[in-house]
């Protein structure tokens, strides 16, 4: 069974609340999360297709196509 939101994966277990808060803040800001990508690949059972640099570059490129409201 796949459980991949922060709470369900238990990624937060063993981490301090500061680290968890920082992880949440990164997500709110819309920052790339390579660890989440690696976790996804592990759960999905395949090797990561991108290095961290490639992942970050693709992430920023996609972000540039998103809209910000008035």
């Amino acid at each position: 069974m796949r459980r991949e939101t922060e709470r369900e994966t238990g990624k937060g277990k063993g981490e301090t609340w500061v680290r968890r808060a920082l992880r949440a803040a990164r997500r709110v800001l819309g920052a790339p999360d390579y660890d989440a990508y690696l976790e996804h690949c592990r759960v999905a059972g395949h090797e990561p297709g991108m290095s961290e640099r490639e992942y970050v570059a693709q992430f920023f490129e996609a972000k540039g196509k998103g809209l910000r409201c008035c």
Partner: peptide, 17 residues
């Protein structure tokens, strides 16, 4: 889910986003 744009996200985090 591809770990990039399609990512299941905690609802409070997504609320802020």
């Amino acid at each position: 889910n591809n770990g990039r744009d399609f990512v299941p996200t905690n609802r409070w985090v997504l609320y802020g986003h």
